[in-house]
Design a protein around this nucleic acid. Sequence first.
DNA 1: TGTGTTTTGTGAATTGTTTCACATTAATTC
DNA 2: GAATTAATGTGAAACAATTCACAAAACACA
Lengths: 217, 217
Amino acid sequence: MKQFTKHNTRNSLRRIFLYHGLLVRLNSMGVKRVYSYNLAEGARVTPEQVRKDFSEYGIRGNRRGGYMTVLLLNEMETLFRRDRVTNVILVGMGNLGQALSKYSRFGQRGINIVATFDIDPYKQKTRDEMQVYTPGRLQEIIDRFHVTVAIIAVPDISAQEVCNELVGMGIRGIVNFSPVLLRVPEYVIVNNVNLSDEIESVIWSVYRMKEQQSLYL
Amino acid sequence: MKQFTKHNTRNSLRRIFLYHGLLVRLNSMGVKRVYSYNLAEGARVTPEQVRKDFSEYGIRGNRRGGYMTVLLLNEMETLFRRDRVTNVILVGMGNLGQALSKYSRFGQRGINIVATFDIDPYKQKTRDEMQVYTPGRLQEIIDRFHVTVAIIAVPDISAQEVCNELVGMGIRGIVNFSPVLLRVPEYVIVNNVNLSDEIESVIWSVYRMKEQQSLYL
DNA sequence: TGTGTTTTGTGAATTGTTTCACATTAATTC
DNA sequence: GAATTAATGTGAAACAATTCACAAAACACA
Ligand SMILES: NC(=O)c1ccc[n+]([C@@H]2O[C@H](COP(=O)([O-])OP(=O)(O)OC[C@H]3O[C@@H](n4cnc5c(N)ncnc54)[C@H](O)[C@@H]3O)[C@@H](O)[C@H]2O)c1
Ligand SMILES: NC(=O)c1ccc[n+]([C@@H]2O[C@H](COP(=O)([O-])OP(=O)(O)OC[C@H]3O[C@@H](n4cnc5c(N)ncnc54)[C@H](O)[C@@H]3O)[C@@H](O)[C@H]2O)c1
């Protein structure tokens, strides 16, 4: 087993997923060979970056011949567990939780939301098709489906509490949509996704760009 | 006007927003003075990082006295336009678009979704409270409300097309939730937010951590 | 007013990431 | 089958971000 000691940053992983997405499209379009500059163009990076990223994960192509699309795809899918489906639970079936639970393309990405949870009994009943469980059944479901990754979409006040429970029940990875930074043991992976920040940073970048442009008028 | 030539990375902006959030909470708790290590602890960074970030944006405190909470908050709100509300439009009122349009806390962040758009006439009618417009009225609304930032929550196939229209109508910043990298002129800011990637990167990090741990058994 | 203490602000050092430059290899052409 | 061409793979160089180290400032208290 190759060990990834150095690098392995969030950035390189992000790019790898991008390359994979592009590769799926190219493959479905019947492209047999792909070159670092093809992927680079699609991912808006340099070809060197693509090759360095692959090199980082031990993925190798043919000099002069680039990469065989199918082989590269297979290699990536094995390496990044795209060959397996991972069971995930979702806690908090409010606006965002419902949107996520209805998204039909997670399956293509190997993400399977096996169960959703909410404390609100009204939400437990009314969700069409997908069963919404009470948090009392968390441990049972986690054990039954060998769940190690959870999505938190509860209000900020409850987020840390829910997080603690989940970690206590064996969850090792959390995607947190609430606007608080969760405190977890070092063996737990957390990805904090703050949608307000994502929007606000664009707003601010636009203001800043306008200011700079007006300096040259 | 201070010019931000160097640095100004996405990372430092992200952290600045984090500090702001913490500051709002500390202020509402009646904390009068705040020190770099307070913010550092909350944001999970080093105190030096906090001070460097502030220094970067020309924010200064008192040696030994830290920062006056209210003054720092005011300074940040002026600097980062938190004192103004920015009008934003949202295109695509499917699962995700509806969740975003119902989120009530954007207002606190100075984000005001003034109008939403969808090609589906059914969606144009049924959304409670918020009016959903046909894309035919985009230019009119953009002009009327001086909109420069848009959120794209349409399917991947339509995303680039919608993006082109928006840019042609004067939009300068785009938050893109579709899983394609948009192609825009260099004067337009794009933030691609890929929720599948956010989840998948956690899944993969968990797998990897487990592998590494099993090496030491 | 002076001395000790605490905290900021920031150059310098370190660490991390991306790009460059080119040797190496494989395919193609003659 | 030798020469040419076009790609990869990767150290080295350049660049970027973070941490270190400490001087400068502000406050406390005698
Ligand atoms: N909706 C958005 O567009 C948006 C944007 C930015 C941030 N967020 C953040 O995402 C999170 C979810 O947002 P939302 O709009 O879906 O909120 P919401 O209030 O609509 O939904 C939250 C849900 O969590 C449930 N809940 C509360 N405590 C719980 C617990 N202990 N266990 C299980 N369920 C619990 C509630 O019953 C509710 O159904 C919030 O933290 C919000 O700040 C959402
Ligand atoms: N929902 C999620 O949890 C989720 C997760 C990951 C990624 N995404 C991405 O976010 C985007 C939106 O997802 P969704 O689940 O809301 O999809 P959806 O299919 O539910 O909604 C898309 C909406 O866009 C509208 N639309 C299509 N073309 C349009 C056009 N040209 N102009 C205006 N409106 C148009 C459709 O009528 C529909 O209402 C997609 O690109 C999806 O891949 C969503």
